[in-house]
């Protein structure tokens, strides 16, 4: 599957077809080779990490290192980047992805966690055995639930709709709260 041909600047992919490249046995400075200090800083790691072995890092740090190693690429491909990340990390990296994408870079996120996709990707593809079997622009698309658990805010809106309460498709808790408050008052 030629991922670069898929439409979108930031793309979400749901698939088991792809395996993450691992760097066991390598030092971080052997993995992040282009402008390493700058790249490490951008992914919110301390530059001391450059002299540490990849194996000794947490998954969260490993994923940040993998991103740092690709920051200057035209196309950034991250597999299960959300694993080990905190909520706050995801918010930061979504902002970073949006910023990077404005420099005409393509970001491809192959992930098991739809929280990474919401408020971030332009389009979501489901790929199985090298074929696109479904794609959507809308994370609220209920067909998507067949392939991945929706973000909790989407699940909440769906459950409300099931009870006949039509909420707009809010992607932020603050907006949702205000909407609930308006309805309830």
């Amino acid at each position: 599957m030629e991922l670069s041909n898929l439409n979108g600047q930031i793309i979400g992919i749901i698939s088991d077809d792809f395996k993450k490249e691992e760097y066991f046995g390598k030092l971080v400075n052997e993995i992040v080779t282009t402008k390493p200090n700058e790249a490490i800083k951008m992914v919110k790691l301390d530059s001391n990490i450059l002299n540490i072995n990849y194996d000794d890092l947490s998954i969260r740090e490993q994923n940040k290192v993998i991103l740092a190693s690709q920051l200057h690429n035209k196309e950034i491909i991250l597999i299960n980047f959300s694993k080990g990340m905190l909520k706050k990390d995801l918010e930061y990296f979504k902002r970073l992805f949006k910023k990077i994408s404005t420099y005409n870079r393509k970001i491809i996120l192959i992930d098991k966690n739809a929280d990474l996709f919401i408020n971030c990707v332009d389009r979501i593809y489901v790929i199985n055995n090298d074929k696109v079997i479904f794609d959507t622009l809308d994370i609220f698309d209920r067909v998507l639930d067949m392939y991945i658990d929706p973000p909790k805010i989407v699940e909440f809106c769906h459950k409300c709709e099931n009870l006949g309460v039509r909420l707009d498709h809010y992607k932020e808790l603050d907006e949702l709260l205000k909407a609930i408050y308006r309805i309830k008052s």
């Binding site: 905190l86 909520k87 706050k88 990390d89 808790l173 709260l177 609930i180 408050y181």
Partner: peptide
């Protein structure tokens, strides 16, 4: 929990905020 970056589970967060709105 929010300061450490973990946040709250969505349902807990939403219902906690709704207590602030007296809902």
């Amino acid at each position: 929990l929010k300061k450490l970056g973990y946040g709250l589970p969505f349902v807990v967060d939403l219902s906690t905020q709704l207590t602030y709105y007296n809902i």
